[in-house]
């Protein structure tokens, strides 16, 4: 357990400089002449941020820009005042709606990320095994990752992110295609990251899930930021008409 909560990060990555707050200033994104995100100015501190909004609002896009998978066409992103860098990118992880697992066993999917992060191979198997147990996947170690159920695959993706020991974890609708039991397992895992001190940024369509998890809510609509407020305030007294309609379940997903 001590190995899991305090992973042995290789020397080069054992950076402890703070990453938060994450500040976006006037961030916009264009694709083929179409403006998909407009002028987003937003500051995220610690805790669990839920990004909400109807389909096409730009939720996934916003996360990919923050994570550095896409480069904004306008504005800037700062991590504790620093521009994005490869070093900072290594302290982030992302879990996708459809887990992208390698064509290998569940265990090998975990030892893989330890290998690319430079862990000595002697440590890899034990650490990976521990992470599997931690996420209730111990019995599936030797199963090919791609034949696991949807819920197991998503938990494996979370276990993989866990081994990366990120300071920030992005989750792009991680429960969109899962059954209720699997959704509960994913939410429990998200809370484990939270308790370890990992900043959570997650998109969801599920209002109840947002109520269960959110510390603060970012509400996007048609590529614009309409609200960023503490969860309670967002759900009780949304400021914009769109957010109010969304909270009542009246906006199309």
């Amino acid at each position: 357990m001590s190995d899991l909560s305090q992973p042995h990060l290789p020397q080069a990555q054992a950076v402890t400089a703070p990453m938060l707050p994450l500040a976006l200033t006037g961030v916009g994104f264009e694709h083929r002449g179409q403006r998909l995100l407009h002028d987003i100015t937003l500051t995220l501190g610690a805790g669990r941020t839920l990004v909400m909004g109807p389909n096409g609002a730009g939720k996934s896009l916003l996360m990919r820009l923050c994570h550095g998978l896409l480069t904004p066409s306008a504005g800037q992103i700062r991590w504790h005042g620093q521009p994005p860098s490869p070093g900072l990118a290594l302290r982030q992880a992302m879990v996708f709606q459809r887990p992208v697992l390698l064509k290998r066993t569940a265990l090998a999917n975990l030892t893989y990320v330890l290998a690319i992060r430079g862990y000595p191979w002697r440590q890899r198997k034990a650490l990976a095994q521990e992470a599997l147990e931690h996420f209730g996947l111990a019995g599936l170690a030797q199963r090919p990752a791609r034949v696991l159920s949807g819920g197991e695959q998503q938990r494996l993706a979370l276990a993989r992110a866990w081994l990366l020991a990120p300071d920030i974890l992005f989750l792009d609708e991680p429960t969109a295609a899962l059954d209720p039991a699997a959704i509960r397992a994913v939410e429990a895992a998200v809370n484990q990251f939270h308790h370890r001190g990992t900043k959570i940024v997650m998109t969801t369509h599920d209002l109840n899930q947002a109520r269960r998890l959110a510390d603060d809510v970012v509400f996007l609509h048609a590529g614009r930021l309409l609200e960023h407020s503490p969860a309670e305030r967002f759900f009780d007294t949304p400021q914009s008409g769109e957010a109010a309609a969304f909270v009542r379940g009246e906006l199309p997903w």
């Binding site: 998978l69 982030q92 992302m94 996708f96 992208v100 064509k103 893989y112 690319i116």
Partner: peptide
């Protein structure tokens, strides 16, 4: 097409993606 975002998220550049892709396409 399937792996790009995940491997980029791991912080891998193109050169380091190559062995992973070759191995996973082994069959």
């Amino acid at each position: 097409g399937e792996y790009r975002e995940q491997l980029a998220s791991f912080g891998l550049g193109r050169a380091r993606m190559m062995p992973t892709l070759l191995w996973d396409a082994r069959v």
